[in-house]
Amino acid sequence: MRKFRVAAFQRKPVFDDVARVAARVGEDIAWCESQGVDLALFPECYVQGYTTDRAMIARRAMAVDGAPFADLLSALPVSGVDAVLGFVELRADGYYNSAAVIGDGLMKGVYSKNHPNERGFLPGRDAPVFHKSGVVFGINICYDANFPESARRLSGQGARLICYPLNNMLAAATAEKWRSRSVENLRQRAVETGCWVASSDVVGTAGEQISFGCTCIVDPQGTVVARVAEGAEGVAVFDMDGFDVP
């Protein structure tokens, strides 16, 4: 038996260039494969770029059963590594801030942000859990971390790991305000649920906004056991114990 290995990537944001993002994610997944990683985590809305502008959301959104999403899947390596990948989703009733679980060349499921703080997105209602190498995990997205009940909803279904795609690209004063609060939220959710927590954030600047980067892995006691340095791209990797992984 071995430990369950998670890799959380901190990446600069890319806007309106899905092919470029797919190429970078493909490289990261291939690296994960070589390192024995089970699950890779990427930032919120990473595929098309995060925005709160309604018109931009509409222009960027893609349906999971449409050709652009199929092209994204085909551009990624067929791998035993599962990836949690944030994207702007189009559905018949509107737009959602979502994260897809992708592995073995397939989309295995989608979680949509239950508590969107962006007016252009509708709230997701479901809280699915996923299975990888015998480990049950779930997803909350960014602002969801402010709602303990969202994390408990996953742990109540047997999740032992909660993944948090983040996008803390904010005005400078707001980014500073959330600089430590984001980490503390993740620590609290871990302690309250007894789950491992992993987050993946963007980093750098976009126009007049900045993200310091809050990419980390937290154990069930609330200890940050791995973190990417603020202000830099990188990856946090950790072997989580307490799981029976074949």
Rank of each mutant, 00 (worst) to 15 (best):
I139Q: 08
I141F: 03
R152V: 07
L154R: 03
A145F: 08
D93Q: 06
K132T: 03
H115C: 10
F147A: 08
F137H: 02
R152H: 14
P128E: 00
S112P: 04
V135C: 06
Y111K: 10
F121R: 01
F130P: 09
N114E: 04
V136L: 11
G103T: 00
R91E: 14
G94W: 01
D104P: 01
M107S: 09
Y143D: 13
K132V: 09
I102F: 06
L154I: 01
I139W: 10
V110F: 01
F147Y: 15
S98A: 15
P123K: 06
L106M: 12
D144N: 12
N117F: 05
N146E: 13
V101R: 03
L122Q: 05
A100D: 01
H115F: 08
N97I: 02
S150P: 00
C142D: 10
N146W: 14
V135N: 01
A151K: 03
G94M: 06
I141P: 01
G156A: 09
G124Y: 00
S150Y: 14
M107K: 10
D104N: 13
L106I: 00
S133G: 04
G105Q: 04
V110S: 02
R119K: 14
E118P: 00
V136R: 13
G156T: 09
R153T: 10
H115T: 14
F130T: 01
F137E: 03
D126H: 11
K108H: 11
A92L: 12
Y96Q: 05
Y111M: 11
V110Q: 05
N97C: 14
Y95T: 05
N140D: 07
L90Q: 15
I141G: 02
A99V: 01
N97F: 01
I102G: 06
R91S: 11
P123T: 05
I141R: 12
L122G: 04
K132D: 10
L154W: 11
V129Q: 09
D93T: 06
I102A: 05
F137S: 05
P116S: 04
A99Y: 04
P123F: 04
H131T: 13
P148L: 14
E118T: 15
L154M: 08
L90C: 07
V136I: 15
N117L: 12
S133C: 11
V136S: 07
P148K: 11
P116I: 04
P116M: 07
N97W: 04
N146P: 00
E89T: 07
G105K: 08
K113G: 01
G94A: 05
D104A: 13
Y95L: 10
